[in-house]
Design a binder for these strands. Sequence first.
RNA 1: GCGGGAGUGGCGGAAUUGGUAGACGCGCACGUUUGAGGGGCGUGUGGAUACAUCCAUACGGGUUCGAUUCCCGUCUCCCGCACCA
Length: 806
Amino acid sequence: MTTKYEFSQIDKKWQDIWDEKEAFKAVDFSPKPKYYTLVEFPYPSGEGLHIGHPRPYTAMDIVSRKKRMQGYNVLFPMGWDAFGLPTENYAIKTHTAPQIVTERNIAHFKKQIKSLGLSFDWSREVNTTDPDYYRWTQWIFLQLYKRGLAYKTTMPVNWCTSCKCVLANEEVVAGVCERCGGEVVRKVKSQWMLMITAYAQRLIDDLADLDFIPRVKIQEINWIGRSEGAEIDFSADTGDKITVYTTRPDTIFGATYMVMSPEHELIEKWKNEGLLKNADEISEYQAQAARKSDFERTELDADKEKTGVRLDGVTGINPGNGADIPIFISDYVLSTYGTGAIMAVPAHDDRDWAFAKKFGLPIVEVVAGGNIEEAAYTDVEDGLMVNSGFLTGKNVADAKLAITEFLEEHGVGRAKVNYKLRDWVFSRQRYWGEPIPMIYCEKCGWVSVPESELPVKLPELEHYAPTEDGESPLSQLDWVNTTCPQCGGKAKRETDTMPNWAGSSWYFLRYCDPKNSDALADKEKLDYWMPVDWYNGGMEHVTLHLLYSRFWAKFLYDEGILSCIEPYLKRTAHGMILGANGEKMSKSRGNVINPDDIVGQYGADTLRLYEMFIGDFEKSAPWNPDGVKGCKRFLDRTAGMSAMIKGRGASSRKIESGLHKVIKKVTEDIDQMKFNTAVAAMMSLQNDIYEQGHLTKDEFETFITILNPFAPHLTEQLWEECGNQSILSISPWPEYDEEKAADESVTYAVQVNGKLRGTISVPAETSKEDALAAAKADEKVAGYLEGKTLVKEIFVPGRMISFVVK
RNA sequence: GCGGGAGUGGCGGAAUUGGUAGACGCGCACGUUUGAGGGGCGUGUGGAUACAUCCAUACGGGUUCGAUUCCCGUCUCCCGCACCA
């Protein structure tokens, strides 16, 4: 009999039995209610599993196991997000094909993940680098192209000088490449783009009904960055129209100058027409701005001064008051937002104020309430319009409406909503990604690869390194030469590949029907399984993967492929596991914990339990080697309980009531991600059982049943040793019985004038009157009541009694 | 700067329609078992103390019979975004 958690003898045994019996297989169209739990599939890096991986995996495994035991048909799948730069860089360095490296990494990851006893349905495993998988990634791209949502354009892009590759906005973090930390510069290139901006409003609106944790919703909304304002057409004395975007049209009478981004197209026009007297100075400034990386350009440095050059020879006209105003170019105006030009209102915008101060431009107050000598007054709640013609006297909100109406009437402006979200740069000049299934024909332009010819397979290569000029290594191959599907003439293939976010944008759909060769998944299976009921992942993916995949799902809904408008009903996020010193784990800090070592030394259940007990699941927590030992001790003591079994039924009122309370607590805590307090409750009950010294077989079996999702290996073993033939992991979850949970007696805290003066213990069903009488009779309490006038009695059933005396 | 979150023992952390602050674990101390160590089992463990009490949840106020919880103000830390007009 097992009296300790002998992990080396039981972990593998039960993993094999679960495999053999297909205990965790998700059944298509089962009459049971379905439940789809999802964790972010990992990128199988060469470093192997990180100690952070098991935290979300175990958490969602616990949710899945509990749901299964509660009678749900659970889909809990796993796969590999295997395209990506680290693999390719490793391949370049070691001259090994990325295909081989990937295969090896996946095998290693899978072995590690399997050692944790997670209840994945491995029969649904997917791999984004499998041609049978990426065939459908390419297919979705073609559908986007067909609808005009994929397009190729030449534009300035973020270019990682180290990866020699284009990055999406979302991949540039603090001015450097989020993957390698390399310097990012601007480079003009022809790129495939996905029009995610077409879905900006829906991506905001549809969050409303979803059960996402608030910080995820807020971060997505902020990233999309909706703002309401107006476009206003200013004119120039050249006869040209300069449209600006502003959120403060109410301040138009305070617009004392204009600023255009250095890239604004009118500047070239005016240069060509010879209108600019200081054309050389302007060109020099433009060249300077172009050299700066986006990071330098947007860096907010306390010492950083605004720069700019006045367009000498051109004057703007304020359509509000008809005033002539100067026009500048400055790099504080971005070409990629709004119209690339602004009306500057220095009295009421911090940036315009700083610029005006530096260049000695007039600052005209149009909203009263601030001190514009000191700083711009940007408050929109208080303050009335002044110096503003027909707007004078109105408040800001009314003035906005009035001026917008005025502009619309006169045809020089209109209400306008803008978003910070940009279209998704979808091309990568690298080898290890899905080829973009497009062909360029001199005669026909860009032509789709016919769907019947998908997948466009990645050809095998000798050299994987990108070329110095920033082209994909695929461009060096004869593979690029093909024929135009439309006219049959000579044509060339697109050599860029997709970003690694492509395959992960729809993988949760493939799990519903992973082997389908006629469609990305069968419609009926999608309708059965989708949407995902609970998706847990990292905060770092909120503005990347989460947003991208919501976009693709919405598109597929529009195409009639999906029946749900949102892919995930519930989204939660786990905290990081830090090193023992409280810092982020990293090789350079020397504080890395390897999950294999923990599993080898303490067993899978110990690692699982500790990762759940370590702290609040949503927050980061430092690793504590002694904390792991505490969890092993609890598991050993759980096994030790089997030697304390006597009889059946209930051993005592106390344990029976405690057990039912813990059933309730564990059941609820799992649903609320409060795994740490669920474990604490079981530990506490175990202490009570040890104190009593014995328990019944029924109690023991119930105890190991609720512990099973956390520590499946040990509890299966103990269940078997109790003489059960069944698999515990798929046995019914215990029912909570309120009557049995009820206590025999209740302890009341007794306060006098708000201070705790005693406690009394009375039978649970004691009436208010009897309880109050008992409280007054308490020796200590009586001492405080004596000689005083009782003003008030407060009775909170089951909790406390409070007397107010004078 | 904007947005979000958090400040509780030596440490990780519990406790919310306001109701016994510090559950549970670690660490530490003592006892016990053992040839010793380790391990197990048990007891104790916020601070001060005149041992009746008093103080204590970042800081300062407020509401209340009662505040970690609600309100006002201040400070600190973490995360995200960042010249988005």
